[in-house]
Design a protein around this nucleic acid. Structure first.
Length: 482
RNA sequence: UGAGGUGUGGCGCAGUUUGGUAGCGCACCUGGUUUGGGACCAGGGGGCCGCAGGUUCGAAUCCUGUCACCUCAACCA
């Protein structure tokens, strides 16, 4: 941890050293701290509160679309991992294995879930007999462990928190519909809750999940122009249901394998919103997930009933459903202004003797730092709700504009390289050959992100592959990725 | 895994080249004055220098090993 009380002067310049800025911000605002084992992080209360708000909003959406929550074990027999060939190849290198327990070596070793397809399919096999048992629409909130070579708080840690939905359907169409439904749900969530515009679409064969038939991605642009995969949904077909021998008897009396979908987002979303909205002052939290949506700072609190009025206002705003903090500590106001800006609190309310005389509150918005505004004290809760919504809209609009300005249409590898090197996504045409994808990666370090659903030809593009210049009809985003 | 860097009170760092009683700023504690963009005065507490060996009369400093973290690259959900 950095100096926790005098940190704002110590965060790196966001434009000069973005990586250091990120590390500084996540530690100095007390979102997170490093754990004692390799790549582990402690999510501190200020960071965990964001996760709780994300959970609340997502969970409500899952339930509204018919899903239920369950919990499966973290330790899984090693043999389960080996059933699906691509799955084991994809995950084996990063799986942690438990070999001893109870003071003895285990007869069958256990692995710590890096994801739960195997254990969940094992259980589904017992639960599914008839078409009447379908669909199964289960989500799980859990931790997973993946032994990564390099780690960064929220972006890639050896253990992280996520939700994973695993659904079974009687036919392919329904499973695919589910896969896309959740993809759009994630997009809507990112927009309306995180104020973060995202790029959605289908992943290339190279980038798809180990064991999936098709993978769809939610990609977010960070302010260094790199992409962060912020969520994925997968259509598994019958890949797992076959190897786990899950069958049901259908209306037509035939025994069939159900079709499966799976989808997830993780604490990486916290990293995404930090890097999408942050600036030179530190965090800038979207109001709908901010631990405190507003902070009240009394000025000369002992004078003229200022403190008392602040307490009253706090109660009033709480009653209106606003997450609010009153900071009546001994620090000076200027110190608090800077502190809460660094911590990204969307709205700062200042109340001093002068405000009380005029029946107003003075406020500062994090999305327009430096400016000051004034609102009517007797209508505070209505005003605050309006301001918070406006902050959300403004943050989204800012981010959208940023994204739009940083998507470049390119026709060859040279243009592609120049664009991604100067912090852009590119939209281009691709022939579909994996070799071209790999070559671009080798030459530019940029990888394919998603193929947007709108495949209509852009005026600025030609039907020739960005790499081999042969006929190409796939429109796709490339970007450097986290 | 490759290259580079860093480990010294809670945090940020100096001290290591040239071994000789561990220092600075912030934070913290006590008292007081303060309060509209990071206050001030006075007093005070806290570290054997990542860890393990070795050299030496003597090691934060030299040698060997080891661990952790950071950055870049590779890999990856």
């Amino acid at each position: 941890m950095a100096n926790e009380k005098d940190a704002v002067n110590q965060i790196a310049d966001v434009d000069k050293d973005f990586a250091q800025w990120y590390t500084d911000v996540v530690t100095k605002t007390q979102l997170v701290d490093y754990g004692p084992t390799k790549g582990s992080m402690v999510i501190r209360p200020y960071g965990y509160a964001i996760w709780e708000n994300i959970q609340k909003e997502l969970d409500r959406r899952f339930k509204e679309t018919g899903h239920v929550n369950a919990y499966f074990p973290m330790l899984i027999p090693l043999s389960f991992l080996q059933k699906e060939k691509d799955h084991i190849e994809g995950f084996a290198p990063e799986v942690a294995i438990v070999t001893h327990a109870g003071g003895e070596e285990l007869a069958e070793k256990l692995f710590i879930r890096p994801t739960s397809e195997t254990i969940i399919c094992h259980m589904y096999q017992k639960w599914v007999q008839s078409y009447r048992d379908l669909p199964i629409l289960i989500n799980q909130w859990a931790n997973v462990v993946r032994w990564e070579k390099t780690t960064r708080p929220f972006l890639r840690t050896s253990e992280f928190l996520w939700q994973e939905g695993h659904t079974l359907h009687a036919d392919a169409d329904e499973a695919m519909e589910e896969t896309l439904k959740i993809l759009y749900l994630y997009e809507e969530f990112c927009k309306n809750i995180l104020a973060m515009p995202v790029f959605i679409g289908k992943k290339s064969e190279k980038e798809k999940f180990a064991g999936a038939v098709a993978t769809y991605g939610v990609e977010a642009m960070m302010r260094d122009g790199k992409s962060l995969q912020s969520g994925t949904t997968h259509y598994f077909g019958t890949n797992f249901t076959k190897v786990f021998d899950i069958t049901f008897q259908d209306r037509d009396k035939e025994r069939k394998h159900p079709h499966e979908s799976s989808w997830g987002v993780s604490t990486r979303l916290i990293g995404a919103l930090i890097m999408a909205h942050g600036d030179e002052r530190g965090l800038c939290l979207p109001p709908r997930v901010a631990p405190y949506q507003a902070v009240i700072i009394p000025i000369m609190g002992h004078k003229g009933g200022v403190n008392e009025r602040c307490v009253e206002l706090k109660r009033e705003l709480e009653k209106a459903g606003i997450r609010i903090k009153l900071d009546d500590s001994d620090e000076r106001p200027g110190w608090k202004f800077n502190e809460y800006e660094m911590k990204g609190v969307p709205l700062r309310i200042e109340i001093g003797p002068r405000d009380l005389e005029n029946g107003v509150f003075t406020y500062g918005r994090r999305d327009r730092a430096g400016e000051k505004f004034s609102g009517k004290l007797d209508k505070a809760s209505d005003e605050v709700i309006k301001i918070l919504d406006d902050i959300h809209e403004n943050m989204y609009a800012k981010a959208k504009k940023f994204n739009d300005n940083r998507v470049k249409l390119v026709k060859n590898v040279q243009e592609l390289k120049e664009a991604v090197d100067s912090g852009n996504f590119v939209l281009t045409m691709w022939c579909g050959d994996r070799k071209c994808e790999e070559k671009v990666k080798e030459l530019t370090t940029a990888s394919t992100r998603v193929m947007p659903f709108d495949q209509k030809m852009d005026k600025g593009l030609a039907a020739k592959c960005v790499c081999c210049a042969k006929k190409a009809d796939i429109k796709i985003y490339f970007a450097k990725a986290y």
